[in-house]
């Protein structure tokens, strides 16, 4: 107390107020800068990072998210990374929950690429905006192929064009395969007849082999066993990067007539990403940057890649920043294209 009295005598009350004000200002100025390098990492110390997935236990989305969750704690000082399956509503409930979760960087999750088309056509029940999510990474690219039976009538695109009826099997409305079939029908004007109701894409492949339907559009990884056995052959790649060994296969955009450029661009984006990771809109920039860095490091990490390879999960990383730009661009669809997509996917 005596000391403080001396100081007051020396600098006076006004001087003391000035000193405190300057100190407070300096503290405020220094605090964000000093914390920037430290805070994002420190923020996660001892905390729980929750990962959401809209897929049910054991589904492809669930397995990818659990794979990240098992390795994230090696890159962040978090206590635990629990996975929560938020199922139901054709995966909309899970995506809505991710979008509406607190943007503190402690809740992130997997996003299904099929949600892009659902949002554009204004599917009932959607409360999220993909363009506003904080995109952290894309961990895989799973191209989609149209396959036919080598013993069937349609082993080339010319044969399909010349046909009177070309049956494509699907799992039913609301699935990516069904949307693909509807888009193929609209864009190519082939005489496509959709046979819907199969319980899985492998079941449709079997129907192709039996000759019950002529074609199936599915993910390359799922088609792989039958492609290897020669029971099915590919005739078209729906989009994205060309698959190694199938470079001669035409891309869907290559055979699309003029007038569908915007749709083809959208499909190309959709098919070049597959296992997307995002957080809700508004995660503080430093934490978002750190999480993006963490996923980048994980995608290059030997232990993680070995675990992914053993689980037959192909990792093909795209940085979060690139996905952020890609999504913001992709979701800017003109009303004309929205109408066209609604016409193809909803009204038909």
């Amino acid at each position: 107390m005596k000391g403080s009295g001396k100081i007051i005598k020396i600098i006076g009350y006004k001087g003391l107020v000035s000193v405190f004000t300057l100190a407070a200002l300096a503290f405020l100025l220094v605090l964000p800068g000093a914390g920037h390098a430290q805070t994002a990492m420190d923020f996660y110390k001892g905390k729980t990072l929750k990962m959401l997935t809209a897929g049910g236990p054991g589904s492809g989305h669930d397995q990818y998210v659990r794979l990240y969750a098992a390795h994230l704690a090696r890159f962040l000082p978090v206590d635990a990374v629990p996975v929560e399956n938020v199922v139901g509503g054709g995966e909309l409930i899970g995506h809505n929950k991710l979008y509406e979760s607190t943007p503190d960087g402690l809740t992130i999750g997997g996003v299904n690429r099929g949600m892009m088309l659902f949002q554009i056509i204004g599917t009932k029940g959607i409360r999220f905006d993909l363009a506003k999510l904080t995109w952290l990474a894309n961990m895989a690219a799973e191209p989609r192929l149209m396959v036919v039976s080598p013993k069937g009538k349609f082993t080339s695109l010319d044969a399909i064009r010349a046909s009177k009826e070309f049956k494509i099997g699907t799992e039913g409305a609301g699935t990516t395969g069904h949307s693909d079939a509807l888009i193929v029908k609209e864009v190519t004007k082939w005489p496509v007849k959709i046979v819907a109701g199969y319980t899985g894409t492998t079941e449709i492949q079997l129907a192709v082999v039996k000759g019950e339907v002529d074609a199936n559009i599915g993910v390359y990884d799922t088609l792989y066993p039958m492609l290897v056995s020669g029971d099915i052959i590919p005739v078209l790649q729906m989009g994205g990067r060309k698959i190694k060994g199938l470079e001669n296969l035409p891309l869907f955009k290559d055979i699309a007539p003029p007038g569908y450029e915007a749709l083809m661009r959208l499909l190309d984006v959709q098919y070049s990403v597959s296992r997307l990771v995002a957080g809700p809109p508004g995660i503080p920039a430093d934490r978002a940057a750190l999480l993006r860095e963490v996923f980048k490091k994980m995608a290059e990490d030997k232990t993680f890649l070995e675990a992914a390879a053993k689980a037959k999960r192909n990792i093909e990383f795209t940085p979060g920043e690139a996905i952020q730009k890609m999504m913001e661009e992709a979701m800017k669809v003109s009303q004309k294209d929205v109408d066209m997509l609604q016409d193809i996917l909803v009204k038909k």
Binding site: G58, G200, T202, E203, Q205, L206, P225, V228, S229, D231
Partner: peptide, 29 residues
């Protein structure tokens, strides 16, 4: 069908199919 075509006959077989592929056993003829 899981072994012959890689088409799982049940939900459990779908998981088993993934394991077979993971272990390097590709279903088919």
């Amino acid at each position: 069908p899981t072994l012959a075509f890689g088409v799982p006959g049940s939900g459990g077989m779908a998981v088993l199919l993934g394991v077979l592929i993971m272990l390097g056993i590709i279903p088919g003829p």
